[in-house]
Design a protein around this nucleic acid. Structure first.
Length: 948
RNA sequence: GCCGUCUUAGCUCAGCGGUAGAGCACUCGCUUCACACGCGAUAGGUCAGAAGUUCAAAUCUUCUAGACGGCACCA
């Protein structure tokens, strides 16, 4: 058989995905076992504007490993893909397109046309990431692909909104919200990031206090009762400190602590607010910290959350002085109207300086709220928005955690604690967004300002008694629809819809449906999903909301487990980002190293740990892929020499063949045992989401055990055309490739299909009729110790140790590889028997032409020696080649190493406390180890003396 | 400010109560008929520092130092 010398990933990647997808292997319906247990995952929907980044690649790898593993175990698996409509991002992209291509704005084209363009944009660019997922080998069911603005998902959104509104969990009201002046929309708390600014300033402003008490207590003073401005001479000033001087234009009071001796006499007096001609009261409020700043606070109820609260307590005017684009408005005064907020700040300061009212300016480290997406400084502003009250749902989620420990986070620390703490302090959620792209809020208003919330415009009109209504112009936060993703993806649209028959249904179930039997819907079948795989950054934004909304609307857990992946950092150790230019494109990695190498590298990162990107590490796995390729290549190239008809050998025949035609060689029994233990450990690692452990197991089995030892031990038999030897190595290879398949799907499929006898006979029973593919074979379980053979492992260890000792001697003594040596071993009858049975292999791998087995050594003085665990002695006669000084040094080196260990053991064993209190078997173990070391040391010392 | 994570071989990281591990890099030797994306053999670490618990600590506790993350912030 002609096989290329190196693995070419691109070829395999092209060949298999399309076939898998077309054959329906990714769909749950491929499973023909009516009793199969389901295993489901829904993808965290990537943003339609996005393209694949390393975080996706990491998460998708983990999901695909789980799905492929479970599918091979015979579960009815579903991995549901989809995308998210990404309100602000798409809105911005389309607006950009309008500006660049037509020089127009969204307002120019109007809402309807804008939305049409947004859909067109989505159609054109929205599939980028789904195409990239095909490249990744993601075994998702494309027939169930969902988009958050699909008809049924949109219905679900309206349905949830209406229900929450009717039950009083959604309300509309004036609150201080986070406003992004660039995107011109409100943001939720979670979409605002705090940014520390070291070069901030704290401005101390002097507000003149009027001597005349106000006519009316509380509230702004009417301007007609204004006192004459105080002269500079005898005027009292109240000094306030602020980081945002421009907001003073909207001040409607100054607050001091009621018990502050410095100021309490001023409470009730009036301040002449500079630049505005307005007079505002001084109020006493506990909120004020007398220790901070000057102890007097300017109060701007329409532009600060704390001031807003003070304003409510003192019934202050809420004066809005800014427009939605961050410029000042008319209320700020003619001098400032239309001026950008930062320009206005400068101007305010200039004016205060001119008026001699700027006391001082201090450098001050401030933290600024910025828009997560565009980094624009967010403006707290009073605005009329829709909110969801979170208390009820919060309590449900906390209850779920308390009583059932759901969701179970992996890693549990620190996520469970952080999640719980966050929920406990959860505030109301701002859900309206001033955008056009998204789910328009299903609320309508009549001319009198009455609100009608309904599923459709018709319904709302009906409720309003036929009045003409106008729909709310805002859309809902994208995360509102994402919050329903766990169940809206399975066809839930609201009351009664969950039972609607699914178009995609397993054949046997569809038959039952035809017979009038009620069949379970996708919702019943696949929810709760088994696991959610996502990043830390959206635990609050998305995970928590899905848990709450799923519980509330379907009364189910959304999922059992949450795997929280770490962050893939750039080479500089910082999160990858466009601005830092430290990003690594997964597609480039696929091209350079292959998809499989990239996948298994990503899987090898410890769950939840951050990792600094390093190309060298993927290279490791590219080399691994090549190693597997070549190991298989060797088997295939040499099996042709046998006369065995491989094409007729299915799994059970092969098994039978082995059982009947045994006995196996020691190497066969050994590799079987290792294979079985590896499979068992691998399954356990996957059950515990220890992907890195799983990768390590399969890597070392394949390379260190299968390639380095097993193939080498069997090479002569196989190349000589030994039918049994070939049969067995294929049997091992088949199983090993299956274990590797979830991690490296393309390579394993490519190779497995080349194996003699790889047909659908080897499939899991649930997929018996499907076209042959490794992805439908049974995953090796290593169950109940099948093939475990500790005796064979111990014997093999002796053989390996013998070979390694001789190799060590050869290397240290500078024996040329081409020179053959003689090996003398003195040991027990058992040792001799084991070595005798493997003489050919020992001679080949240690490059010896003679193996002499004796009861006691009888070799020339010019021999290099070593001692094996268990006490057997090895000698390699090196007449004329040996360097006595070097041999002495070599032996003493070994003695020194043993001595270090012996000292420690002696220390422990002479400690009465240890002997008394440590477990007996531990003490026994150390005693045995001590005897072993003493024995070896004695032998080695004798060897040193013999050199004299 | 509150909560949390990390600090282990030159580099990137596993291990998380009982003899310090991997990959890469380094040193030495090999084009040996699957693979130089390879084979063989070495070398390299008082597991950040200190104290404590324990027969036993890289692993548990506390403190210190450094790196980082989340949350909340007083103008």
């Amino acid at each position: 058989m002609e096989i290329p010398k190196a693995y070419d990933p691109a070829q395999a990647e092209q060949d298999h995905y399309e076939r898998w997808e077309k054959s329906g292997f990714f769909r749950p319906e491929i499973n023909e076992d009516p009793n199969a247990v389901k295993y489901s995952i829904v993808i965290p929907p990537p943003n339609v504007t996005g393209s694949l980044h390393m975080g996706h690649a990491l998460q998708h790898t983990i999901m695909d490993v789980l799905i492929r593993w479970k599918r091979m175990q015979g579960f009815r698996t579903l991995w549901l893909p989809g995308t998210d409509h990404a309100g602000i991002s798409v809105q911005r992209k389309v607006a950009e397109q309008l500006r660049e291509e037509e020089g127009t704005t969204p307002l120019d084209v109007g809402r309807e046309e804008f939305i049409r363009r947004a859909w067109a944009w989505k159609e054109q660019y929205g599939d980028t990431i789904t195409e990239q997922m095909r490249r990744e080998g993601a075994s998702v069911d494309w027939s169930r692909h969902r988009f958050t603005m699909d008809e049924s998902l949109s219905t679900a959104v309206r349905s949830v909104f209406v229900t929450l509104y009717n039950e009083g969990w959604i309300y509309k009201g004036l609150r201080i919200v986070n406003w992004c002046p660039k995107d011109k929309t409100v943001l939720s708390d979670l979409e605002v990031k705090e940014e520390t600014k070291k070069d901030g300033k704290l401005y101390y402003l002097k507000y003149p206090v009027l001597s005349v008490p106000p006519a009316v207590a509380g509230g702004a003073v009417p301007s007609d009762e204004k006192s004459p401005p105080a002269t500079a001479g005898g005027t009292d000033f109240l000094v306030v400190a602020t980081t945002r001087p421009e907001t003073m234009l909207g001040d409607t009071a100054v607050a001091v602590h009621p018990k502050d001796e410095r100021y309490k006499h001023l409470i009730g007096k009036i301040v002449d607010l500079p630049l505005t001609g307005r007079e505002i009261p001084i109020v006493g409020d506990d909120y004020v910290d007398p220790e901070f700043g000057t102890g007097a606070v300017k109060v701007t109820p329409a532009h600060d959350p704390n001031d807003y609260q003070i304003g409510l307590r003192h019934d202050l005017e809420q004066l809005l002085v800014m427009n939605d684009d961050g410029t000042m408005n008319a209320a700020a005064g003619a001098d400032f109207d239309g001026l950008d907020r930062f320009k206005a700040r400068e101007k305010v300061i200039e004016r205060f300086e001119e008026l001699g009212l700027l006391e001082r300016v201090e450098d001050y480290e401030i933290t600024l709220p910025v828009c997560e997406r565009c980094k624009t400084v967010v403006e707290p502003i009073l605005s009329d928005q829709w909110f969801v009250k979170m208390d009820e749902m919060r309590d449900m989620a906390l209850e779920l955690m308390r009583t059932e420990g759901v969701p179970h986070f992996s890693p549990q620390v620190p996520h469970e604690k952080v999640y719980t703490a966050w929920l406990e302090n959860l505030k109301d959620w701002t859900i309206s967004r001033q955008l056009w792209w998204g789910h328009q809020i299903p609320a309508w208003y009549d001319d009198d300002g009455n609100t009608y919330v309904a599923m459709t415009a018709e319904e709302a009109k009906e409720k309003a008694g036929g009045k003409e209504l106008k729909q709310d112009q805002d859309v809902l936060d994208t995360w509102f629809s994402s919050g329903l993703w766990a169940f809206s993806t399975f066809g839930w649209t609201g009351k009664g819809n969950a039972d609607a028959p699914s178009a995609m249904r397993a054949e046997p179930e569809r038959k039952r449906a035809d017979e009038g039997v009620r069949v379970p819907s996708d919702l019943d079948t696949f929810l709760p999903t088994d696991v959610l795989v996502t990043g830390r950054d959206i635990i609050f934004l998305w995970v928590s909301r899905m848990i709450m909304l799923t519980k509330k609307f379907v009364d189910k857990k959304a999922f059992e487990d949450v795997i929280v992946t770490g962050t893939v950092l750039g080479k500089d150790g910082k999160p990858m980002s466009k601005s830092r230019k430290n990003g690594v494109d997964p597609i480039e990695m696929f091209d350079k190293f292959g998809v499989d190498a990239t996948r298994i590298y990503l899987a090898s990162i410890a769950t939840g740990a951050d990792i600094k990107w390093n190309d060298l590490l993927i290279e490791t796995y590219r080399n691994f892929a090549n190693k597997i390729w070549n190991a298989t290549r060797f088997c295939l190239m040499n099996s042709g020499k046998s006369d065995f008809d491989w094409s007729t050998a299915n799994e059970s025949e092969r098994k039978k063949y082995h059982e009947e035609r045994g006995p196996h060689t020691l190497a066969d029994r050994w590799i079987n045992s290792r294979l079985s233990k590896t499979a068992k450990a691998l399954n356990k690692a996957l059950e515990n989401y220890q992907f890195h452990e799983a990768v390590s197991l399969i890597y070392h089995f394949f390379w260190d055990e299968f390639c380095d030892w097993y193939i080498e031990l069997k090479k002569d038999e196989i190349t000589a055309g030994n039918v049994l030897a070939s049969a067995h190595i294929f049997w091992v290879l088949d199983i090993a490739l299956r274990m590797l398949h979830p991690f490296m799907p393309y390579l394993t499929e490519e190779l497995w299909l080349k194996l003699p006898g790889s047909s659908n006979d080897l499939h899991h029973s649930a997929y018996r009729d499907a076209e042959a593919s490794i992805m439908l074979t049974e995953f090796p379980q290593g169950k109940s110790g099948e093939f475990v053979d500790d005796q064979a492992e111990a014997e093999m260890q002796l053989v390996i140790d013998t070979i390694k000792r001789v190799r060590n001697i050869r290397s240290e003594m500078n024996i040329k590889p081409s020179d053959r040596v003689e090996i003398h071993v003195a040991g027990s009858a058992e040792t001799q028997g084991i070595l005798a049975a493997n003489e050919a292999q020992i001679k080949k791998l240690a490059r010896a032409d003679k193996l002499v087995l004796t009861d006691s050594l009888a070799v020339p003085k010019a021999s290099a020696k070593a001692v094996l665990t268990g006490g057997a002695e090895i000698a390699v006669p090196l007449e004329g080649l040996i360097d006595f000084d070097k041999e002495r040094e070599r032996l003493q080196n070994q003695i020194a190493k043993l001595d270090t260990e012996l000292q420690r053991l002696n220390g422990q064993l002479s400690n009465a406390n240890f002997v008394e209190r440590a477990p007996a078997e531990k003490v026994q173990e150390l005693r045995e180890r001590k005897n072993e070391i003493e024995h070896q040391t004695t032998t080695l010392n004798a060897n040193v003396i013999a050199l004299e």
